[in-house]
Amino acid sequence: MSLELVCPAGTPSALRAAVEAGAHSVYCGFRDETNARNFPGLNFSPDELVEGVRFAHAHGAKVLVAINTFAKAGAMDAWKAALANAEKAGADAVILADLAVLDHAATHHPNLRLHLSVQAAAATPEAIAFYADTFGVKRVVMPRVLSVEEIAKLNAAINVETEAFVFGGLCPMTEGRCSLSSYATGKSPNLTGVCSPPEHVAYTEDRNGTATRLNGFTIDRFGAGEQAGYPTLCKGRFVAGGKTSYLFEDPVSLNAASLIAALAKAGITALKIEGRQRGKGYVTEVVRTFRAAVEAIDAGGTEVEVGRLLAGLVEGGRQTSGAYKKTWR
């Protein structure tokens, strides 16, 4: 196997669906603020993780546990418990971002394999060397602001594995440093694990279509039949300079399937699919399609038409290769 396919699971049934669809690894989180997909009804209890790891291992797949929010000063108990529960469940690695959580894991759970979350936004050889030398981090998830060429240069200068997102929701900001959601709701993915927390989101239908409101602020309005996106500020439509537009980013999903071979050549170890908040239908279709794409490239075959196969699952009905190509340069 040349490339490891790392797939999302928001629930135990999604984990089973991902494994059965061909995931080499599945990543998931606990049902609290210790992970960046802290949505109502989502995620795993400690007992469910034990069962999930047992199922994955029985099918030859690994389980990586995301504990990737930033711990609150003086209130680290939830993050410490998450690390202990991940180790107890037999997780193959934990995905961390916060320095204190990394330090606690390296000191108290030396047998846990540590991956550095995209939330840590480590994009230089110096930053990555610091995490590797100080905490023993074995893999770094690449920030989604780097081009393939930049990843190749980075991989040549470091000696840990790297993982790159290839499909799903796309943050236009540097991960771990975006506070847009906090301005409108007081909560952010970095500290509470939620961007645009659903208790602040409301959709209102009227004759002109659907208005999306975030804590009372109207952030988008789309007409009947117009494709919709997630209710995040970064993908909202605003008036600036007398013009209404998607100021930061269009509603669009990442699809880097056409770059799988280039990413492998750039030294990437693993390909990551975003979407722990998505359903089994999404997990099954995306994992199956990307597994076929990876195997086709391994076998020197022709590229699988991922974009066409998954067109119905993407945000805003549009797909982009994001920063990997940086066509705007």
Partner: peptide, 27 residues
Amino acid sequence: DALFFNRAIAVSGRTDALVALRNAIED
């Protein structure tokens, strides 16, 4: 999410309750 993006369904009211129900049904 895909049905919502494609406007195959329409939703209104408490989004947090809907998300919780959706995730519970999923599992």
